[in-house]
Nucleic acid binder design. Structure first.
Length: 399
DNA sequence: TCTGGGGTCCTAGGACCC
DNA sequence: TCTGGGGTCCTAGGACCC
């Protein structure tokens, strides 16, 4: 079963503020150059879509109401939703903040069958949070996801195994979870437009053109998918932050000030959840949107803001910039959980760790960089205040 | 008042080692 | 009288997802 909230962020905002109900609204980020994150269905009627910039969205719908997103609200709701799913099965995969997979194979009979569970979940969520969701039920995740995608909004659809073939026959491959614009274009070049055609395509042809995923593509066309519901929370593989700058900047010291800011955000999140990483990457985007990433490997696992910052700034130092920069990103990857902190043999190490812990605690409570190193303040002074980025992150690493 | 932010997975090429 | 085969690690880039 796939449970997908309808226009999740927008629905939550409409619930929180009755004035917004029934109106075309869109949730955005907080920075100046933001885009639409979610549009209410009232706004979608006018053509407002996720990813549009504000200018485009306002052009499509002049009386569109813009609401700045509040991630904590959505994360909180997501956690509450997860508890509801868990009443029906322990096998719940919280795939994203607004979407979950439930394996009800062995539990549905306890609740009167799959459809009854879907109806119950929809009702509980509607009663409790006032928001709609769409439920897809199928023999596997791929088709359950499809069932919910094609039944939005406020839908419930059970695709039984005997109906899979018929539904896929004329469905465009792009509609399948995992087939994006590039693959569907390449398939179209082979004369494959529908899932039916994909399922009948030559396996060797697909293998030749797409390598290892060729086989999977054919199976997907046939509606076959063996991906299980992964209810165990997996360890994250990277922790990163990026931000589009209020204005494009070319000054390296200014860029470095943002790198520091982002390094602190990354380091603090890593420390909070006890992760260290061995690779640091810096992503930059030019005004024309060309985007590139360079990374470096550390000699040891680390999560210190200093080390992350220094690595990222070193990378910057090796780059010849051809233009101003519009986006900067810092990411820590190749990460692992820290061992239960074994006290260091060295007094100075111990004191340093303790100091960092205290600084983090203060900053968690009072905000980024309320307590920081004097050397950092000197840098920041040059460039004025840097506002924190709004962050529609996955739900994994929230407190 | 042009185009966000956070992720995962895969491929390919080069350096280096035995 | 032309240069193997097997492997790891590293970096960069791209496709895809929400």
């Amino acid at each position: 079963m796939c449970v997908d909230m309808d226009a999740f962020f927008a629905s939550v905002e409409q619930q929180a503020n009755p004035h917004l109900r029934g109106k075309p609204i869109a949730v955005t980020g907080s920075s100046a150059r933001t885009v639409i994150t979610t549009a209410s269905y009232e706004a979608r009627k006018f053509g407002v879509k996720t990813g549009m910039n504000i200018y485009e969205a306002k052009k499509a719908c002049p009386h569109l109401i813009l609401v700045t997103g509040d991630n904590e609200k959505y994360t909180h709701t997501c956690k509450e939703l997860t508890k509801i799913y868990n009443r029906f099965t322990p096998d719940v995969e919280v795939y994203s903040i607004d979407e979950a997979f439930l394996d009800i194979t062995t539990t549905h009979h306890l609740f009167g069958g799959p459809e009854a569970i879907g109806i119950s979940i929809k009702k509980i969520i509607k009663d409790r949070f006032g928001i709609n969701c769409t439920v897809g039920i199928a023999p596997n995740i791929l088709i359950a996801k499809l069932a919910s995608d094609i039944s939005k909004p406020d839908g419930l659809r059970w695709i039984r195994i005997e109906n899979v073939e018929g539904i896929l026959e004329n469905l465009l491959v792009k509609e399948l979870w995992g087939i994006g614009s590039k693959i569907s274009e390449r398939l179209a070049a082979l004369g494959i437009k529908t899932c039916g055609e994909l399922g009948r395509a030559s396996a060797s042809l697909l293998r030749n053109r797409f390598g290892i995923i060729g086989e999977t593509l054919k199976l997907m066309g046939m509606g076959i998918c063996s991906r299980p519901v992964i209810s165990d929370e997996e360890e994250p593989k990277s922790i990163g932050h990026s931000m589009t700058l209020p204005k494009n900047i070319g000054d390296r010291d200014e860029i470095k000030a943002y790198i520091l800011k982002l390094s602190e955000m990354v380091g603090r999140r890593a420390r909070r959840y006890r992760y260290s990483g061995r690779k640091v990457s810096l992503t930059l985007r030019y005004p024309d949107f060309e985007t590139f990433t360079k990374q470096t490997t550390l000699s040891q696992y680390a999560n210190d803001t200093h080390i992350i910052y220094k690595s990222a700034a070193d990378i910057l130092g090796r780059i010849r910039l051809r233009d101003k920069i519009r986006l900067i990103g810092v990411c820590l990857s190749d990460i692992k959980t820290d061992k239960p902190s074994q006290p260091s043999l060295f007094e100075i190490e111990r004191r340093r760790k303790e100091l960092l812990n205290i600084m983090d605690a203060v900053n968690d409570r009072y905000g980024d960089f309320k307590l920081t190193w004097a050397s950092y303040i000197m840098q920041e002074k040059d460039t004025g205040v840097i506002s924190p980025a709004w962050r529609p992150a996955g739900i994994r690493l929230f407190a």
